[in-house]
Every structure is written in structure tokens, then in C-alpha cells.
């Protein structure tokens, strides 16, 4: 009896996982003809409510032109890039928002790649862009070899090899948190499923 209960529970887990794996297959979103301003969750500058604001993969995606693009900055910025790292080295709460840490704080010229989501305040209105741009979406979850296997890393590691920066339990993006970030040595169990040998992003350039 005990034995069959155990088998049953295993089966249920398997069915559940198989089902969820289906949901994790990569899809493509179509960004066509965007309507005016904030595509993303209202940034702090437009918002005066209290309480923490958490976000998920949808928000994450809305801040990027395509999977792999640097996200836009959803708030006002200071004058020097040094200020960015005041908040973006570890999750910090500010006016109800939590700052996601940068996975590559060693690169100091932040505004080289990250631009404001909305332009400077001197422009009273934002603009509408008519575009036929189609973007690839963020990968969802890595594949598992078998139901109990740790999922693989479904994204490139270039500039994103500091796992804790995004997957920490205190990260504002609730969808990508892991429940055991205290274990630190992520790559012990999670290997990239991105075919690194074929990837143009996998190896360092050597002269």
C-alpha cells in the first residue's frame, strides 16, 4: 500500500512536470505598432503609491527590445554612472521599489548601453513609434534531463555569469528567483543548455 502511494505520487509529479515543460517551450512575441508610453510597469517617476512593487518575466521582457538587449532604465537617472551602482549592487528598497542588482558591475559606463525608458522630463509628451520589429522572447525555464534533474541554464552567460545578481531570493523579479540561493555554487548543478560550443558568445577573445 505504502509502495503504491509512493508510485502514485511520483506519477503525479511526473505528469505535472511534463505539463509545465510544455509551457516552458520558447514562444515568440510580436511587438507591433506600440501605443504611446509606458510599455512596462509604471516607473517610479510616474507613480506615487506605497508598498513594494514586484515584477515578473513580462515586465522583464517589456523593458528589452529583444531577448539579449540591454534593458531600458525605468526611472530618472543621475548625472554620473557612479550613481547607478549606489542602488544596483544589491537589492535596495527605495520608495516602494526594489532595485535589481547589476550582473556586471565591473562595467562602469552604464549609460553606454542602458538608456532611459522615457526621455528627459523637459519633453512633456512621449512619442509613438510605428515599427514592424519582431523580437525573440526571453527563454522561460531550462530543460531537465529527467524530472528530478536540476534545470539547465537557458541563457547566455556573457555579462550574465553572476547568477546571484538576478536569481537571489530578494530580487524584485519574483519569476526568476530561486528558492535556494544560499547554496551559492550554482554551476555545480545547473549547466548551460545553450550550445556554448556553437555559440558566438561562449568563448573569450584571445589575440
Amino acid at each position: 500500500m505504502k509502495h503504491s502511494l509512493f508510485t502514485l505520487s511520483i506519477l503525479i509529479v511526473l505528469i505535472y512536470l511534463a505539463h509545465s515543460l510544455d509551457n516552458y517551450s520558447n514562444t515568440q512575441s510580436v511587438f507591433v505598432d506600440e501605443e504611446v508610453i509606458p510599455q512596462f510597469n509604471p516607473p517610479p517617476e510616474d507613480e506615487e503609491k506605497s508598498g513594494f512593487v514586484f515584477s515578473g518575466l513580462e515586465t522583464r521582457e517589456s523593458r528589452r527590445s529583444f531577448y539579449g538587449a540591454p534593458p531600458v532604465i525605468p526611472h530618472r537617472i543621475g548625472k554620473t554612472d557612479r550613481e547607478c551602482l549606489n542602488c544596483h549592487t544589491e537589492p535596495k528598497e527605495f520608495m516602494g521599489h526594489v532595485s535589481p542588482p547589476s550582473p556586471h558591475p565591473e562595467l562602469v559606463n552604464c549609460t553606454q548601453c542602458h538608456v532611459r525608458g522615457n526621455g528627459p522630463e523637459i519633453f512633456k509628451k512621449t512619442v509613438t513609434i510605428k515599427t514592424n520589429w519582431l523580437a525573440i522572447t526571453e527563454p522561460k525555464m531550462g530543460s531537465r534531463n529527467h524530472p528530478f534533474a536540476p534545470p539547465t541554464v537557458p541563457h547566455r552567460l556573457h555579462m550574465r555569469d553572476n547568477c546571484a545578481a538576478c536569481h537571489n531570493q530578494s530580487h524584485p523579479n519574483t519569476d526568476i528567483r530561486v528558492n535556494h540561493s544560499q547554496r551559492k555554487n550554482c554551476m555545480q548543478c545547473h549547466v548551460p543548455d545553450y550550445d556554448q560550443s556553437m555559440s558566438p558568445f561562449s568563448h573569450e577573445f584571445t589575440e
Binding site: 527590445s65 529583444f66 531577448y67 539579449g68 538587449a69 540591454p70 562595467l107 549609460t111 553606454q112 548601453c113 542602458h114 538608456v115 513609434i129 510605428k130 515599427t131 514592424n132 520589429w133 519582431l134 523580437a135 525573440i136 547566455r156 556573457h158 555579462m159 558566438p200 558568445f201 561562449s202 568563448h203 573569450e204 577573445f205 589575440e207
Partner: peptide, 29 residues
């Protein structure tokens, strides 16, 4: 559908700027 910095290129070693990352979208106005 996507643009990334080329790690093998000695000019930029994998890094681009905001314009470079979005160069692909410039084709689709």
C-alpha cells in the same frame, strides 16, 4: 531578430552601445 556584441571581434570584445544593440530594429520602421 536580435543583435549581440561579437566576442571574437578585437574592437569591442563582445560589448556594444545602446545604438548597436538596437541596430536590428532600425530596419523595421
Amino acid at each position: 531578430m536580435a543583435v549581440q556584441g561579437d566576442l571574437q571581434n578585437p574592437v569591442n570584445k563582445g560589448l556594444l552601445c545602446a545604438k548597436g544593440y538596437h541596430a536590428g530594429a532600425a530596419l523595421y520602421g
